[in-house]
Amino acid sequence: MKRLRAFRLTEEVAAALVFAAVAVLPVAISFNPYYLSIFISALILGAVSIAWNLLAGVCGQVSFGHAGFFGIGAYVSAILVMKAGWNPYIAMGAAGLAGVTGALLIGIPAFRLRGPYFALAILGFAEVMKLLAVNLTGLTEGSQGIFNVPPLPGFRVGGVVVDFYVSGTPNYYFAAVLMLAVYLAAYFLRRSNTGLAMFAVQGDEETAAGIGVPVLRTKLVALTVSAFSTALMGAFYTHYVHFLSPDMAFDGYWTVMPVVGSLFGGMGTLIGPGVGSLVITGLDEFVFKRFFETGHKLFFGLLLAVVIVWAPSGLLGRRVRKTTHGGKG
């Protein structure tokens, strides 16, 4: 029993298990389109949570403005595809870069602020982005939103046609690949020298600066990678839902839920936020909602409170060893 309690996985093994489970999940649920659609939204949230955690959990910079990056990505991709005729895959890449631009615009001035002031500044940034989307009607169709955003183009793999419009399965695997890509970006960044610098910044900024860590640059790297990933998921979201409006693209959901997913899964790990997002989405949809049609969100809040009080390091916090510079635990 003692050995079981002491049992801890490495980050790599935990991530491999999670992504293996994600890969076989559609088979386990017999490719049920409803379950798939729920897990697609969970994977989108999972990827955004991993991206958020890179900034907050690894670098110590709490953001309340990730909805801003999510919305930028969604709008840039939709506009490039619908107004400029871009290929959606290329537009998604451009959407990620637009997220980086937004991150630099807010990051350079806001990182001069510390503690809650950065969080507040980035919250204001998200609100400004939303107002721009509402008011730049020539480009964004304003508050009425953009209808009929095309799905990702299909392709052939051998004899199999991958159609993103007709079936949920390609969307599911595409979302899973994006979450894996976001995870790998966070993983390799954390193992790099910059990752070590992030740890130092998270611990104590002044001490980090004192030993020669470029604090501003380190924070900006964390923010831009996080923003790129979040904007990329926003772009995927719009091609999946086929509709976009300022209210949904910059919805507070994309600011709050990554925090919740990270707290639930464990901020000390990289894969924890992804797992947290998958679990909370699944629990809410398949357990709470089944029993409490209109009050299910209440249980969700209670569950989160229980986790924060009794397991502050989250689901995986005590079961996964942190990987730091060079992969040494």
């Binding site: 049920n32 389109p33 409803y34 798939l36 659609s37 729920i38 697609i40 939204s41 989108i44 949920g168 979201y237 999946y240 839902v241 509709f243 949904m248 959901y253 949809e285 909602k289 049609e293 209109t294 299910h296 969100k297």
Partner: peptide, 22 residues
């Protein structure tokens, strides 16, 4: 068959996936 779409476009898609697909 009633489905709460939670005022969310993602869940509205899930609603039809469940109602029509399942």
């Amino acid at each position: 068959f009633v489905y709460d779409d939670e005022s969310s476009p993602l869940k509205a898609v899930a609603a039809v996936e469940k109602l029509a697909g399942v």
